[in-house]
């Protein structure tokens, strides 16, 4: 426990001093601002382009469009940036040898894994909260009439998927030596999840549904209750993977 808090402090300091926290926050802040802006501007730009006669009736942009942008940008770009940024979570320390000093000082390997995971989840939580707050504020400002269904629940699902993705990343990091290997395994895991989702029956149990059903949730075409099973499975899998990561790292030859 003492090990855990000491190393967690070091992790937080590291993300601050190596500008990783800054990059995450900036990327998510920019997404947060541009989401409603894009929703507003896109139809207007299209309208400008189609001035010569062929008038199409474009629907007026709504708050729903702004949140569509939010769930698209955050799921695709945001998660990719996060995975790339965190891919060196173990390999950079192992290849440089900075962790050896700590381990020979009696730092427990379990504490290494747990504090690293905690810190990643912390950074992800702050980033998505910032992005959500900015999108929310500007959406209210631009589309005062809009009312969106299941917004908090849908964002929670996205957040939970991020938490799940981070544990997959952590497990890959304990399995490989380089950050490219880590990226590769994480990417492969995401692709496998997507492929499995082709089978409709698997949809309910697949964690990736947490990141693909968001639009359905806010448009009320997917029932909230249909995701309960997915949430439960994602939580269980996350716990299992944390446990596995600790187990593997404790037996890893350094």
């Amino acid at each position: 426990m003492r090990n855990y808090s000491a190393f967690l402090k070091k992790e937080v300091l590291e993300y601050t001093k190596t500008y990783k926290l800054l990059i995450m926050l900036m990327v998510f802040a920019v997404f947060g601002i541009t989401n409603p802006l894009m929703a507003k501007l896109l139809p207007e730009i299209l309208r400008k382009l189609m001035t010569d006669g062929n008038i199409m009736t474009l629907p007026e942009a709504t708050a729903y469009d702004a949140w569509t942008q939010f769930f698209k940008n955050a799921t695709q770009m945001g998660l990719i940036v996060m995975v790339i940024l965190f891919s060196g979570v173990l390999s950079s320390e192992l290849s440089k040898g900075t962790l050896i000093n700590m381990l020979t000082k009696g730092l427990s390997r379990t504490a290494v894994i747990l504090s690293k995971y905690t810190c990643m989840v912390l950074v992800w939580t702050i980033s998505i909260a910032l992005c959500f707050a900015l999108t929310y504020g500007y959406t209210v400002y631009l589309f005062p009439a809009g009312e969106t269904a299941n917004l908090i629940f849908s964002t929670f699902c996205l957040w939970l998927f991020g938490v799940f993705l981070l544990v997959v990343l952590l497990l890959s990091a304990t399995l490989t030596k380089s950050n490219y290997g880590c990226l590769l395994i994480t990417g492969a895991a995401a692709v496998v999840c997507m492929l499995v989702n082709i089978i409709p029956a698997a949809h309910r149990y697949n964690p990736i549904s947490l990141a693909t059903d968001n639009l359905g949730l806010i448009s009320n075409s997917i029932a909230v209750s249909s995701l309960y099973c997915t949430i439960l499975i994602s939580c269980l899998l996350s716990l299992l993977f944390v446990f596995l990561s600790v187990l593997i790292f404790r037996k890893k030859q350094l």
């Binding site: 440089k96 040898g97 900075t98 050896i100 000093n101 020979t104 009696g106």
Partner: peptide, 18 residues
């Protein structure tokens, strides 16, 4: 047993930002 040992690796590396 590591609590009784101090170790100096051949090329020691530290957190450079500290």
């Amino acid at each position: 047993t590591n609590r009784n040992i101090g170790f100096l690796p051949d090329v020691p590396e530290f957190y450079g930002y500290m």
